[in-house]
């Protein structure tokens, strides 16, 4: 089973900074998007159980290499890094176009994406890629398994009532949730082995994409303004001994009919 995992290199959560034009500064200090680590974990477990290999695919600046290195240390086989100065400021539409072009150049049975990213939080790129490539799109997966015939994939999709079981022919694109299970820590040996793994770097020219179609100038959306959320006011911090604290918290919730 060949699985491509889409990974976005995002600023380390809590250290996000905005640059010019309210753009997230992604120049340094990047890590794999948290949700993407969950689908990577699912991909690694599937290939460990059924054979195959995992390829990481990212579009991002040079610093995205750090995020790829962690994914390789966790156990991915190789990484593909789409990097081109013309990509800076690309909108979700352009990102989907570039990643779809990269996927066309790869052989795979499944492509995985996390539910959304901690910086952009658009949550639409995966669906847009599936639409461009005409792939079945299985979203909000809580469990992923190969179908009985080896040509299909089956997922449990979270629903308000529990989950739906979906099946689709491969290749398919699965968008996963954190219910898939905690990502592993990269092992120490994995960190060292990652040094010897292959990372392919592709430019827009490699993908046959006209630079005029991507980047800030071609963006179909524009951030007009951005502001930090207002500070939360009136937090009550309870520092009593546990028995007293429990009583006060229960009283607080009961007063609001929450328990």
């Amino acid at each position: 089973m060949r699985i491509v995992v889409l990974v976005k290199a995002v600023p380390i959560v809590g250290n996000e900074r905005l640059g010019d034009g309210f753009r997230v500064d992604r120049g340094s200090g990047l890590e794999p998007n948290g949700n993407d680590e969950y689908v990577l974990e699912a991909a690694l477990k599937l290939t460990e159980a059924h054979g195959g290999e995992v390829t990481l695919l990212t579009m991002g600046p040079a610093a995205a290499a750090d995020a790829l290195r962690k994914g390789l240390a966790m156990g991915a086989t190789r990484a593909v890094h789409v990097s081109d100065e013309a990509l800076a400021g690309s909108c979700a539409r352009a990102t989907a176009e570039v990643l779809a072009a990269a996927l066309r150049r790869l052989e795979y049975d499944l492509a995985f994406a996390g539910a959304d990213t901690s910086d952009g939080q658009g949550g639409i790129v995966a669906a847009a890629i599936a639409a461009r490539l005409g792939l079945p799109y299985l979203s909000y997966a809580a469990h992923i398994e190969p179908g009985a015939d080896g040509a299909t994939v089956r997922v449990h999709r979270l629903s308000p009532a529990g989950y739906d079981v979906l099946e689709a022919p491969m290749p398919a694109l699965v968008m996963g949730t954190q219910v898939l299970g905690e990502p592993r820590y990269p092992s120490l040996r994995g960190i060292m082995q990652a040094r010897g793994k292959e990372t392919l770097t592709w430019s827009l020219a490699d993908l046959g994409i006209d630079p005029a179609r991507v980047g800030a100038a071609a963006a179909t959306t524009r951030v007009l303004t951005a502001a930090p959320p207002p500070p939360r006011a009136g937090a009550t911090i309870i520092r009593d001994a546990p028995d007293v604290a429990v009583e006060r918290i229960v009283d607080f919730l009961a007063a609001r009919s929450l328990v």
Partner: peptide, 26 residues
Amino acid sequence: MTVAPGEPGALTPEESLLRDMARDFA
């Protein structure tokens, strides 16, 4: 994570991953 005070120089990418992983695990 930035380099801590007293750290004599930049960490290699592997050292950086090791430190982050060790901190996360710990």
